[in-house]
């Protein structure tokens, strides 16, 4: 028996008794960041393949969703910062070893491309908006420009979107101090999940049956791929060092087992895969339900990953005293 116990009470907020530095703000950001990547990819795909008829929503209206989603995500990311006035410090240096620095700079590249991609769709997709923009001095000119370069912009958007999608996973997987995150599968998993959550948007809002069908089919494939990647993720932990095995235990019999399987894998992956498949057979309400569950599953994936990863640790000491008592000091 080994008893490792803190002799001096230690109760650093958000660090003790177990890490809780990142909560819903980061999960929302990772969710919306992934979705943004997916939106950009599908919009770019529609543009590159000139599917303005078949995939009308994706071609003309989808792109605008990306800056909205990402900006919401950036807002929650900002909310998470503890030293907010210094947020500008992300842009006074580039730290090549820091995934977060990469992320910050990727956003600098993503934003203009994303905006241009959106502008290239405004006149067809959102004429009212385009009308307002025309009244701004260079508005018309920028829209002309982005329409002329639409396919080039779309081509640029693809690698950036892939980078953004993968980055949301790498952000976590680069933190080797948290064994649950130490898997190379996290980047691809978050990218595919992001695409999946983006794909359900046209399923829900597109007026074209063909487009809906296309995205439903795509989504079945993506969910399947996601299931494969979740399996690879679990297998990579199962084949890791002792700390990884302990981390895996959190969802394989440990305290997060129920949450991971019953709140994420089943309702967020397996059920929507089946429902989406039924949706393909023509049961539209099943398709819609599947879409909602995919969104739920995409968020739960981020939420649980953030939660469980923080609980997994190399350093774990029992406490002798009730750490809550220390709150008397600051009352």
């Amino acid at each position: 028996m080994i008893e490792e116990v803190l002799v001096t009470a230690r109760h650093n907020p958000k660090i003790d008794p177990s890490l809780g530095i990142w909560t819903w703000e980061i999960s929302v950001y990772l969710f919306l960041g992934g979705m943004t990547a997916g939106i950009m990819l599908f919009a770019a795909w529609a543009m590159l393949t000139r599917k303005q008829e078949v995939l009308a929503f994706a071609h003309d209206r989808f792109a605008l969703w990306a800056p909205i989603a990402l900006s919401l995500g950036m807002t929650t990311l900002f909310l998470d910062l503890e030293h907010k006035l210094y947020v500008w410090r992300f842009y006074t240096s580039f730290e090549p070893t820091s995934p977060m620095s990469w992320g910050a700079w990727i956003l600098v590249l993503v934003y203009p491309v994303m905006i241009l991609q959106t502008l290239s769709t405004l006149r067809r997709g959102y004429p009212t908006l385009a009308g307002w923009l025309e009244r701004i001095p260079v508005g018309g000119w920028v829209m002309d420009l982005s329409e002329n370069w639409r396919r080039t912009i779309a081509a640029l958007a693809i690698p950036l979107a892939v980078g953004l999608g993968i980055y949301t996973g790498v952000l976590l997987s680069a933190l080797s101090a948290r064994p649950f995150w130490s898997s190379g599968a996290l980047g691809p998993l978050f990218l595919v999940s992001g695409m999946s959550t983006a794909a359900v948007i046209p399923v829900m809002v597109s007026r074209l049956k063909g487009e809906r069908h296309f995205f439903e089919t795509t989504d079945v494939g993506l969910i399947f791929l996601e299931v494969v990647l979740v399996s690879i993720f679990l297998i990579s932990l199962a084949t890791g060092a002792a700390y990884h095995l302990e981390a895996l235990d959190l969802v394989m019999g440990g305290p997060f087992t129920e949450a991971f399987w019953l709140w994420f894998v089943v309702p967020g992956l397996l059920v929507p895969m089946v429902l989406a498949f039924l949706g393909l057979r023509g049961y539209r309400s099943f398709g819609l339900l599947a879409s909602v569950l995919v969104l739920y599953g995409g968020f739960m994936l981020r939420y649980l990953m953030v939660e469980i990863g923080q609980v997994s640790t190399w350093t774990d000491y029992a406490v002798q005293f009730d750490p809550q008592l220390l709150e008397r000091l600051t009352q």
């Binding site: 660090i15 030293h83 410090r89 190399w314």
Partner: peptide, 21 residues
């Protein structure tokens, strides 16, 4: 401190849980 945004990536990166806010 004057460069820190409080993003907490360093806290997550420390296997010793040696940092604090």
């Amino acid at each position: 401190a004057e460069k820190c945004t409080g993003c907490k990536a360093c806290i997550a990166a420390c296997p010793y849980d040696a940092r604090l806010i």
